[in-house]
Design a protein around this nucleic acid. Structure first.
Lengths: 351, 351
DNA sequence: ATTAGCACTCCACCAAGACGAGTGCCAATC
DNA sequence: GATTGGCACTCGTCTTGGTGGAGTGCTAAT
């Protein structure tokens, strides 16, 4: 990278830091005089101007027009969050709210939705949480019901209480009794295994010699195959607080706003973006155009994967304007991810 | 009503009609000269001005400021849609799209979602469809699964293939076998009856003397009661194309837009509004403030109930700016409602 | 290396004026 | 009595020009 912290004097970095902080807090381009007062180093505005010129040459800050102050560029923000930022401890009452919402698992409502709402509510931005990955979810129960015209309704329950359903087309008509039998057969052999494992096992069965199975078992296996064949059920997420984004002046442009909301309902781009955080541990940040999607040009995403039993199962985060209080948001997202992971962990469930 | 068509000369009505049409088509306040040219009656602008003054006195039109043309008020629109409007036949390709989307029932995807998307796509506004009323849905299958801590996961299937689930708290711990038995018992006696009927029957059983039932039956009934007790599952709707609304200049105000989208995610007000159309047959229209909800102040809703087997089961419609092409939208919503009703009717399903 | 001073640029704000669209009213006309 | 042409008037929009403030870059002095 061209802009490592090595390229710059300690002083320049210090000034960049205060500049970014100042800009984040009041949203106006910050000039040399303001910066001179804000920074602890006692420097005159003139000196500051020299430094600012350097920072501008490096592409870290930029002037909207000649007689305005400076504003951080994307690279400026990037350097700031990577090396300059001093995270602030979480607000005590935010912690309480998070803890209340996530620690005691609410019966019927889903934790994912609660997490998303908490993210949005406490940050005043948009909160997003992906549903846990299928690879990690276990089959708990499966059931078939006959529909008309060789169609069968499959209902399967995963983990504790998530219910999924799907309609499959079978080659022939089955009676309710036959379907029930198939269900119990599959339950008896596949319960407790992950969906991915089930899919693999089923495929293996079909490839192996099928002599040792009777017709009923074969039918059951075939239905299981239809149910769990590849990407039938796309990854999904719960997004809340989108309307919070309409309050920010930097996103006020109707066109941008429309693009953003279109992306939200399209889901595709958002999912792709969140997927990138699935591989990484800890908090990840996409600033402005870094995301690669035009819709998010003036937005930043702060995300973190969350894990159950030390395995990453999903991603959560917030979406807001590029100019956001990273020093508070980053630890906030981090903690939320950890709390959600804990809430999802069946072993830590309180009695 | 003060503004019946009787209060006004044929000519005034004719002029109001062309004024509204003109305003709808180009969005500018329309002045006397423009109106004089647009209307077939050969009248000078001066005459038109006199008529306009009358219409303004009656509160049907209004001037944004002294030297602008006139714009219809809510009452003006109301009179227009009630008595003046000449509906236009549907666009041929719209009909085809509707028919393709709704007539052949797509296997796994839900018709409600398709209908909503079609409404939004073809009108370039927001489309909304309520899920069919519970009173009309029949229980097809019910099933209980044990969870931890005296909780039970209830899965029930209604109609053809809609799957619902709910977690209930039972007084004691049941084994999987007991729960299965309860399920088959309930299936055997309540299958095919509407959810409302089931709820009533269950309550009756509990009030009657319980001597003739064994404990297992009683437990089953109690669980059914928990499952179907009052408003457990709120009415819901599918809303699509919200982002289309961001394009309209009359809704460009950020504050209004936020209120509107907040109402969408809140759902409550929208549901209440749609419920009002449930009672009425045919197309209903809410213009601007008529809805009574501030969020919809500059919007109109064109809705219609849809029926299966001559029974009203839901509502569908579009949401757009007050200034919309009612003469096209009204028949469009009407036809969509009828096609959706037909698509939901199991008897007319094609083999 | 830092700083004070200075000329310069650019935006935001305001006032004034021209223009155009449209009205309301009055007197003339059919 | 309804309709019309004419005319003065109002109001919003657009343009123009001017002012003040904020902030810069450069240069020369420290």
């Amino acid at each position: 990278m061209s802009n490592s912290t090595r390229d710059l004097s300690e002083r320049s970095l210090q000034l960049l830091k205060t500049l970014v902080e100042r800009y984040i807090s009041d949203g106006q381009p910050v000039g040399s005089r303001a910066l001179s007062k804000d920074s602890e180093l006692n420097l005159s505005p003139a000196t500051i101007r020299n430094v600012m010129a350097d920072l501008e040459d490096l592409g870290l800050i930029h002037s909207p027009h000649t007689s305005a102050g400076r504003v951080p560029t994307v690279s400026g923000y990037r350097l700031f969050v990577d090396s300059l930022l001093t995270v602030k401890p979480l607000d005590a009452k935010d912690i309480t709210r998070l803890y209340q919402g996530l620690s005691e698992r609410d019966d019927t409502s889903n934790v994912i939705g609660v997490a998303s709402r908490l993210l949005a509510e406490l940050t005043k931005m948009a909160g997003v949480v992906t549903l846990p990955r299928r690879e990690l979810v276990c089959l708990r129960h499966i059931e078939f019901l006959p529909l008309s015209h060789k169609r069968v309704l499959v209902i399967f329950v995963t983990n504790e209480q998530e219910v999924h359903n799907k309609v499959i087309h079978t080659g022939k008509v089955f009676s309710a009794a036959e379907l029930q039998q198939a269900g119990s057969y599959l339950n008896s052999i596949y319960c407790g295994r992950s969906l991915v494992a089930v899919r693999e096992a089923v495929l293996k069965e079909l490839q192996d010699d099928q002599e040792r199975m009777n017709q009923a078992m074969l039918d059951a296996i075939k239905m299981a195959q239809l149910t769990f064949e590849s990407g039938d059920e796309k990854d999904d997420y719960v997004l809340t607080g989108e309307t919070n984004l309409m309050g920010f002046s930097e996103l006020s442009d109707r066109d941008h706003l429309k693009k953003l909301f279109d992306a939200f309902s399209q889901k595709r781009d958002v999912i792709h973006l969140l997927d990138q955080s699935l591989k990484a541990e800890g908090v990840q940040i996409f600033i402005g155009e870094e995301s690669g999607y035009q819709a998010f040009d003036h937005c930043s995403l702060v995300t973190s994967s969350y894990s159950v039993n030390d395995e990453v199962v999903g991603v959560l985060g917030i979406i807001g304007p590029t100019r956001m209080a990273y020093e508070k948001i980053i630890p906030f997202v981090d903690v939320t991810a950890k709390l959600l992971g804990a809430a999802l962990n069946p072993k830590t469930t309180t009695p």
